[in-house]
Design a protein around this nucleic acid. Structure first.
Lengths: 344, 344
DNA sequence: CTGTTAGCGCGTTCAC
DNA sequence: GTGAACGCGCTAACAG
């Protein structure tokens, strides 16, 4: 037996229209202050809660934002990672960061609720049932953007996370991976390294993020007048390069890849950072335990999600779609040290 | 301009009632197979999607499950952790695991959508607006159960995660932390250790989970005829106990606490597992990097969330509230070794 | 047995 | 400050 607006109206001695006006909170309606106060009090006493379905039906808005949460995280092929196999755990860390960012932003902006679509693979049509006023799509960078393409031309405002390349009419928020690659590489250069390897699939992987991280590596190398090396994606190859004095420092495209590098080096009797300097990317949980503290690039996933909510609110208020890149940040620990300290 | 049911009816040459019957999917309605097929085809061609608000208003059900996602994760006080400060990252791992579990279960059960309430601190009344058919509460084990208490007696079916102690009328799903404590401790006993310390706040911390983990430790010790030791919650104290040959193995109440133990021991020149065996709890991301592979107890957070969804569906189908505990699982790595191998 | 008509659910908003 | 139409799909009762 829930309380309905008519019961409140009756108890307050007014019509339901008046109750609606008062509780809408909007000013500008002609309602006596005393009446308004009485209505509010009665509503509170009776524990009246407006029915969301009726409200949505009439206003054609739900006050809900949809979130399509595709699995996000490490997309590294196993071959690259050696024995390191925490991919799904990394994915969860990022998903958790996304939820934390969404939650914080939604609370701050007073968005009533977020709707998560299970699986995220449903037909694009199903997002158009009025359940949500806008859509955040957390795409898997590896699996391409099938859903985004399908949403091209939707009447629903859409913001895509995790990608720089979105169809027209859709907003995008991503981290500046290329700039992150520059940060990591420049750090190694500043430490005096000249022979710096890029470890990972990079552009050849077909994964947008990894390609951009490699581009950043190349940018920084060229800016310092150094020749970028071809990407290495095998532990043995890297060990050989180090032995031949062709490599004194490594930028691994992810922290997991860095862990794999560390493992390969250790097995060959090489130490980090004494023999080789190492920088990763992502700052995953556990990064502080890798090599006694992995120097890495922090990936602001939560901030990205929060920015996505803000962008969606902008679209809902009539703004036009835009692209935005968030700056990553270098986290200096101990796995990268000055070249001179290596004494080789 | 969205397509409405009447337009479909018109195009298919039937009434809207027939369209509704066909698209409801329910059998038992008397509709010609040929007519039904035609209606379905027309609906598809026109891209008809039933309006959720109208549906919800008429059926008084939303097909949505609410999730109150309080911050969950490491609740360890800083003093216990020494320099190890990855608490928020752990929280995100668990939140991500929860979302992964919810997502998987919802998809499997064909639940249309999950609603996440931002902040999770809103008045209990606000969950009664018909937006959701039931509520999952992922409570913070540290902050107590204010929300759960407030939900006592709600007409809405409620399932609480992360706690064994719930008000009457509410279902609970939690991990069997006590059993996990037994697993960890028994593993050390089986390895030949007799002087086993519990490291952490335990029962004194006031955190339900940690208390139960310590109880499990005590259970296993007593079962082996060994006297449980008083909980240690300071690195220096632990180092002293090891030096005095009072402790040869440590069960730390969380993996982060284990990392702190490791750090304290290392600084004192003691090695894991050569000098001291160490077992953690949670199997957080990064556990495989702690001490070259931390032996720990896996915390099935995703499974817990999935089980929560199942329990909620049971309640929605008229089942009665119940409590459920999920079994944790020992993950053997290399931080705990046989006593004899220690050669002390 | 197939398909239609009519009215419901409940808060919002326009016209008086 | 009020009355009543309205949003849109569902379903009980009814006609063919």
């Amino acid at each position: 037996m829930t309380v309905k607006i008519k019961e409140v109206a009756l108890a307050a001695g007014v019509s339901s229209a008046t109750v609606s006006k008062v509780l809408s909170g909007r000013t500008g309606y002609a309602v006596h202050a005393a009446t308004a106060e009485r209505v509010r009090q009665v509503a509170l006493d009776l524990g009246y809660v407006p029915d969301a379905a009726a409200q949505n039906l009439r206003t054609r808005r739900s006050g809900q934002l949809g979130v399509v949460l595709e699995a996000v995280g490490s997309s590294e092929p196993d071959s690259l990672l050696g024995g390191v196999t925490a991919g799904s755990a990394v994915r969860r860390t990022f998903d958790g960061a996304i939820m934390a960012g969404l939650n914080d932003a939604a609370r701050e902006l007073q968005v009533p609720a977020l709707v998560v679509y299970p699986g995220g693979s449903t037909s694009p049509l199903s997002y158009l049932d009025g359940r949500v006023d806008g859509l955040l799509v957390s795409c898997d960078p590896l699996r391409g953007h099938g859903l985004l393409e399908a949403l091209r031309g939707t009447p629903l405002p859409v913001v895509a996370l995790w990608t720089e390349t979105v169809p027209p009419g859709i907003s995008g928020v991503d981290v500046d991976h290329r700039q992150g690659g520059v940060l990591a590489t420049r750090h190694l250069i500043d430490l005096g390294h000249r022979q710096i390897a890029f470890y990972g699939g990079g552009q050849a992987s077909g994964v947008e993020h990894f390609g951009r991280r490699e581009l950043g590596y190349q940018d920084a190398m060229r800016a310092a007048g150094l020749p970028p090396q071809r990407a290495i994606h095998e532990g043995a190859q890297l060990v050989a390069a180090v032995r031949d004095a062709l490599v004194s420092a490594v930028f691994a495209e992810t922290d997991l890849a860095a862990a794999a590098v560390l493992q390969a080096l250790s097995q060959a009797g090489l130490r980090v950072p004494e023999d080789v300097s190492l920088v990763g990317f992502d700052d995953i949980l556990g990064a502080e335990y890798i090599a006694g503290g992995l120097t890495t690039v922090y990936h602001p996933a939560a901030e990205m999600a929060a920015e996505g909510v803000h962008e969606l609110m902008r679209l809902l208020q009539g703004g036009s779609p835009s692209q935005r890149l968030l700056a990553p940040r270098l986290i200096v620990r101990r796995s990268a040290q000055a070249r001179t300290a290596a004494a080789r």
